Simulated assay, not measured.
Amino acid sequence: MHDTTLLQLIEDDFAPAQQMLELLQTEAIALLGRDMPLLENLLARKQSLVILLEQQGQRRSQLLASLGLSQDREGVQQLASQSQLGERLMQQLDALSKLLADCQAINERNGRSIQLQQNSTANQIRILMGGESPSLYDARGSTSPLAKPRTLSQV
């Protein structure tokens, strides 16, 4: 009975996890194009999927805990070893784990892309504002005006 419930909980996660993977792939493209309206839309949809996946994960953990099993892969293996559905249970768990690992990898890549864009933007703003430019001296021996911060209207 509990094995069937756990299997159903795992299988119920496939659709939202697949949707998450697709959203993350779309996000990668939107990040390259700096499509802010699309990114905002994706963020809202991602947040709802994260909440759903967390709730499902909590249900699985609660089920395993109620059986006195650890709330990880080892606990599922213990349950699977005592079940006729054991092989299918582990196959589905492995498939879901791979899908979620793919989501995590794309999410990390998107995070690095965001950091790179933030650094690039900060560098561009610093250049426009005249900050951290080399100290240059003019013919009179005073510091060049290039080294002094400027407002954007003076750039």
Score class of each variant (00 low, 15 high):
residue 19 Q to K: 15
residue 19 Q to M: 14
residue 20 M to W: 00
residue 20 M to D: 02
residue 21 L to C: 13
residue 21 L to G: 09
residue 22 E to T: 11
residue 22 E to W: 04
residue 22 E to A: 14
residue 23 L to P: 08
residue 24 L to N: 09
residue 26 T to L: 12
residue 27 E to D: 09
residue 27 E to T: 08
residue 28 A to L: 09
residue 31 L to I: 07
residue 31 L to Q: 06
residue 32 L to C: 15
residue 35 D to V: 05
residue 36 M to H: 09
residue 36 M to I: 13
residue 38 L to S: 12
residue 38 L to P: 10
residue 39 L to Y: 08
residue 39 L to H: 09
residue 41 N to D: 12
residue 41 N to H: 13
residue 41 N to T: 11
residue 43 L to P: 07
residue 44 A to P: 05
residue 44 A to R: 14
residue 46 K to A: 11
residue 47 Q to E: 15
residue 47 Q to W: 07
residue 49 L to G: 08
residue 49 L to Q: 10
residue 52 L to Y: 00
residue 55 Q to F: 08
residue 56 Q to T: 02
residue 57 G to K: 03
residue 57 G to D: 07
residue 60 R to I: 02
residue 60 R to N: 00
residue 62 Q to I: 01
residue 62 Q to W: 03
residue 62 Q to T: 01
residue 63 L to N: 02
residue 63 L to I: 00
residue 63 L to A: 08
residue 64 L to I: 02
residue 65 A to L: 07
residue 66 S to N: 13
residue 68 G to S: 02
residue 69 L to G: 03
residue 70 S to C: 06
residue 70 S to R: 11
residue 72 D to W: 06
residue 73 R to K: 14
residue 73 R to V: 03
residue 74 E to N: 04
residue 75 G to C: 01
residue 76 V to K: 04
residue 78 Q to Y: 00
residue 80 A to Y: 01
residue 80 A to P: 13
residue 81 S to Q: 14
residue 83 S to V: 02
residue 83 S to N: 05
residue 83 S to E: 02
residue 87 E to F: 03
residue 88 R to L: 09
residue 89 L to Q: 00
residue 90 M to T: 03
residue 90 M to D: 01
residue 90 M to Y: 05
residue 91 Q to H: 12
residue 91 Q to F: 07
residue 94 D to V: 00
residue 96 L to N: 01
residue 98 K to V: 01
residue 98 K to S: 14
residue 100 L to H: 02
residue 101 A to T: 04
residue 102 D to E: 14
residue 103 C to F: 04
residue 104 Q to W: 05
residue 104 Q to V: 03
residue 109 R to I: 02
residue 109 R to N: 09
residue 110 N to Q: 13
residue 111 G to W: 11
residue 111 G to F: 10
residue 112 R to I: 01
residue 112 R to H: 14
residue 113 S to L: 15
